[in-house]
Write a protein that binds this DNA or RNA. Structure first.
Length: 264
DNA sequence: ACATTGACCTGAGAGC
DNA sequence: TGCTCTCAGGTCAATG
């Protein structure tokens, strides 16, 4: 689930559970998530320290240590955090387990091992190294900025929304929701969207992400006119009741309403 | 520079 | 039941 709203929920979770507690143990259960970082280096950087603040950029989560280093967490396609005490009840796919002096643990889960944990000394360098665009909810990312990055693009609108170099934070399912709310066909090309359509797209993008965060990124709590809870084979348009269409865009499934999201 | 495709991983569910 | 195939909410490298 880890798109911008999910990661924001994880950020708040980490902030409310794991700050200002001294780290006693660090167990790396899979080296794969560490990339170039060695378990030894990670342990050395974490043990004896405490997290003192959190940050997020797009789908990337950061936790700042009192050494001023940052632990950078990315969740890939499947991943989440869990703060818990009883290690016997630890879920199966934890790849990193951080133990605090109070006996609780913060577990980082990544079933498919597509997540990454890194250690960095400043956020700007990570964002630059990954060529991440502005965070989708950054207030400075307004219509003129949106128009600037969309100008001259000819690709598919959905792909552009999901391109982290252009805008950071939107993945496959929220892209579907944004396009649905903006009533834009998922295969529409960026250069086919006029000023009004672009404005609507940006406005719906912000609204959908904010709403999802307010709902704890839990589709069961989403507004009744949201597509995501209907996003499965046989799902129906929450607006007109028609069967949802399902097509492939860039090897990813796209759900949309053939009726409400216009002709191509 | 931009657009498109496939590989990277594991596991769940469909179909036979 | 058990096997194989397809698919899953992300990202990166390679190609045109």
């Amino acid at each position: 689930m880890p798109e911008l709203p999910d990661v924001e929920v994880y950020r708040r979770y980490l902030g409310s559970t794991s700050l200002h507690k001294r780290i006693a143990t660090v167990q790396v259960r899979s080296n794969k998530i560490l990339g170039n970082l060695s378990p030894r280096k990670l342990r050395a950087a974490l043990i004896g320290r405490e997290f003192q603040s959190t940050a997020r950029h797009g789908k990337q989560l950061f936790a700042q240590l009192d050494s001023n280093m940052w632990l950078a967490l990315h969740f890939g396609m499947t991943g989440y955090l869990m703060y818990f005490k009883n290690v016997d009840k630890e879920p199966v796919y934890d790849r990193l387990l951080i133990g605090f002096v109070n006996g609780f643990h913060l577990g980082y889960y990544s079933q498919r091992l597509l997540g990454k944990v890194e250690l960095v000394d400043n956020l700007g360098s990570v964002i630059a190294a990954k060529h991440l665009g502005p965070d989708a909810l950054d207030p400075k990312f307004d219509f003129p900025a949106f128009k600037r990055v969309m100008a001259r693009r000819k690709g598919i609108a959905k792909t552009a929304l999901m391109n982290q170099h252009i805008i950071a934070g939107i993945g496959n399912i929220y892209a579907d929701e944004i396009l649905f709310q903006a009533r834009v066909h998922p295969q529409a090309r960026v250069n086919e969207l006029d000023e009004t359509a672009l404005k609507t797209l940006l406005q719906k993008m912000k609204a959908v992400l904010r709403t999802a965060i307010a709902c704890g990124a839990d589709p069961a709590r989403f507004p009744r006119n949201y597509l995501i809870p209907q996003r499965y084979k046989g799902g129906r348009c929450p607006r007109c009741g028609a069967d949802l269409g399902r097509i492939k865009i860039g090897a990813r499934g796209a759900y949309f309403c053939l009726h409400c999201q216009g002709a191509l």
